[in-house]
Simulated scan of single mutants.
Amino acid sequence: MAAGNYSTVTEFILAGLTENPELQLPLFLFFLGVYVVTMAANLGMITLIGLSSHLHTPMYCFLSSLSFIDLCCSTVITPKMLVNFVTEKNTISYPECMTQLYLFIFFIVSESHMLAMMAYDRYVAICKPLLYNVTMSYQVCSWLVVEVYMMGLIGATAHTGCMLIVVFCKAKVINHYFCDIYPLLELSCSSTYINEVVLLCFSLFNILAPSLTIVVSYVSIIASILQIHSTEGRSKAFRTCSSHILAVTISYGSAAFMYLQPSNVSFMGQSKVASVFYSIIVPMLNPFIYSLRNKEVKVALSKIIEKRPFCISRDF
């Protein structure tokens, strides 16, 4: 390719979800509502866990961390996407694009491993209840959370580092609503072989390794539940796990559809839908999935609500 066809790209243009003008306002209002609910629900979950002493357990430590990850992941993606619905040309500078890519990968990889840690926590709680306090001590829980963020840091650094060496052409319209790996690689003038190998290897590890942990954990959990003679005990154990299984299915299913396929068979229309699920919809759903089916969270919330009128009336 001639040297004149290369350019030093200083900014990109985000194509967004749709080019249909009639859908811009409805989609803006919809995703604005989703973002507000996501912020309120995840901040509420973090605050509730922080204020309720009986929720200061490993399970809710992981859940609080998951809410923080969801809150940050949505904030990295949604505000810029909302701008795209109300502006004629949504530009993003090269440094901003790389920063968005880095933060998105960091939080999405961290969420993948956090879900695996939550499955392991349920495995220990149900299959080895007598050893739970030792196996999932405060120190162990803290180290597991640190390891989750380290995996996110490694994944984000590897992918973004490889992207920084890619040479981009004059065509700079990203056929997506944020700076993601495949849409950026489509604009490359240089070889993307290394990027695709790194992407496939890390995707296999960050999706399949946690998935395997979750599957093994829940196979063991189900085997233990089936040995419980009490119908009420089995029902309680299944309720404890069902919300996590639902969250995992939605999150891993959409992420696997996006990243565990070669770039040459990637249909961007379908990929955008999958991306919407794991980057915007899942962060909104997680706090509801884990709270609406959880009696302890409901009890903690009702106690907080009951305390407020008492505190206010006492002040007067």
Results as ranks from 00 to 15, higher is better:
141 C>A: 07
158 A>D: 08
158 A>F: 12
134 V>H: 11
159 H>L: 14
147 E>M: 09
138 Y>N: 10
147 E>T: 09
140 V>S: 03
144 L>C: 06
154 I>D: 04
161 G>E: 11
152 G>S: 06
158 A>N: 08
159 H>A: 08
164 L>P: 00
152 G>K: 01
144 L>M: 10
150 M>R: 05
155 G>K: 00
147 E>P: 03
148 V>D: 05
140 V>G: 02
135 T>I: 08
167 V>R: 15
139 Q>Y: 09
145 V>D: 00
149 Y>A: 03
165 I>G: 10
161 G>M: 12
153 L>Y: 09
155 G>Q: 05
150 M>Y: 06
146 V>E: 07
150 M>P: 00
146 V>L: 15
152 G>I: 04
156 A>G: 02
137 S>G: 00
137 S>T: 00
149 Y>K: 07
141 C>Y: 01
149 Y>C: 07
136 M>Q: 01
147 E>R: 07
146 V>M: 14
159 H>I: 14
156 A>E: 03
138 Y>C: 01
149 Y>P: 00
161 G>H: 12
163 M>F: 09
156 A>T: 01
145 V>R: 03
144 L>K: 06
155 G>Y: 02
147 E>H: 05
155 G>I: 03
153 L>F: 14
142 S>Y: 07
142 S>D: 04
162 C>F: 14
156 A>C: 06
164 L>N: 12
142 S>L: 12
134 V>C: 08
142 S>E: 07
163 M>N: 02
141 C>S: 09
149 Y>T: 05
160 T>Q: 06
166 V>Y: 08
147 E>I: 11
162 C>W: 08
156 A>W: 01
154 I>E: 01
154 I>C: 06
157 T>A: 15
158 A>M: 15
167 V>K: 15
166 V>A: 11
155 G>T: 02
142 S>K: 14
164 L>M: 15
144 L>I: 12
157 T>C: 12
141 C>Q: 07
143 W>T: 06
162 C>D: 13
151 M>A: 11
134 V>K: 14
155 G>A: 01
161 G>P: 10
139 Q>K: 15
143 W>G: 12
138 Y>P: 01
166 V>I: 15
136 M>Y: 03
143 W>Y: 14
134 V>T: 14
134 V>F: 09
165 I>R: 15
152 G>A: 02
154 I>Q: 02
149 Y>I: 07
141 C>T: 13
145 V>N: 02
148 V>K: 00
137 S>Q: 05
166 V>S: 10
151 M>G: 03
166 V>E: 11
165 I>H: 15
134 V>G: 02
153 L>E: 04
166 V>D: 11
146 V>S: 08
155 G>N: 05
167 V>N: 15
149 Y>R: 08
151 M>T: 12
167 V>P: 03
134 V>D: 13
160 T>V: 05
143 W>R: 15
144 L>T: 00
152 G>N: 00
146 V>A: 13
152 G>P: 06
